[in-house]
Design a protein around this nucleic acid. Sequence first.
DNA 1: GTCTATATATAGATAGAC
DNA 2: GTCTATCTATATATAGAC
Lengths: 193, 193
Amino acid sequence: MPSTAQARIISAALELFAENGVGGTSLQMIADAIGVTKAAVYHQYHSKDEIVLAAAKAELERVDAVVRAAEGEPTQARARKALVSGMVDLAVAHRRTVSSILNDPVIVRFFAEHESFRPVMNRMSRVLVGTDVGHEARVSTAMLTAAISGTVMHPLVAGLDDEVLRSQLQRLAERLLPAMNTKRTQSQSATRS
Amino acid sequence: MPSTAQARIISAALELFAENGVGGTSLQMIADAIGVTKAAVYHQYHSKDEIVLAAAKAELERVDAVVRAAEGEPTQARARKALVSGMVDLAVAHRRTVSSILNDPVIVRFFAEHESFRPVMNRMSRVLVGTDVGHEARVSTAMLTAAISGTVMHPLVAGLDDEVLRSQLQRLAERLLPAMNTKRTQSQSATRS
DNA sequence: GTCTATATATAGATAGAC
DNA sequence: GTCTATCTATATATAGAC
């Protein structure tokens, strides 16, 4: 839970990361963006890595909220629809930031190194493909997230209205969902920490 | 037409850009990677921007070759299949580099600023959706490229064999193709319940 | 084409006053 | 919580010898 001063830093950092990449963003830029000096920033976070970590966590929390909402749906079919819809809304609402940040090599490395990030992706995958861990399931999940986050910042859709983009994106995203073995719908309330 | 010395620089730069981002890659890193000094690198390219530009051009040339091959197909249906297939092959063959580079904010800005990059994307779009410039066509094209390039570097598919990834990716990518007005080539219907 | 050496700016980071 | 001042390392970039 970041303080207000920390929240301003994270917010500015996310914007700058999206525009310049993590490696291309300096603490001086962040400080300038919120109108303070570097030392003030260092008083909140002791290193650049800590800022990157906090920014990544803030982004992931948005995804976590969407996943949690989907997990609350009564059937898997509805859960999947809720997940796709929520992810599309999230991506459209943050066109410029979401994709560039999730794809930044530095952030990707953080996700790989810090284990606390993995559960969210696993839960998302479980909502989408259940307990199936086959090839198709994995590729489907990966493709769905990559497609949604990548499309919204594509130059070809830059001029599109949010509403139009959202509806088209949602319709296309659902085509990527793997076929459901509609037999059993997994209990959605279990296994959450 | 890069010299051999220039080609080595570009090759090393592409690897490093993928791993650290453009902003996180210094000329010293590039020089170290190919075993020369910074001054030797500067003798080939007068600035970091020139290296980024040359690297982006090299990547785009690979895409251009795929598009050109697709354009040579006799029918639009075959052209689209060839394009998807070629893009998938390209992405799988360069799992680590393709996506991180195409999504890097610095590269994206280069693509937007330098007009010479745009025609390739327009030709690709024309192969995929013909002269249609509607919303669905634009989102489809954007999503197809984002999905292919983004999936291959997703952690979820990191352990997958190239062959498996390629076949799954191709099958899923074809689901994103918009319906063709002329004749059906797939049993895949355009609208799903 | 590659080197040594160097100029200048800015990076990440810390100390200590207010 | 924010500042000034400062440290050290490294960034981009150039000059000129081999």
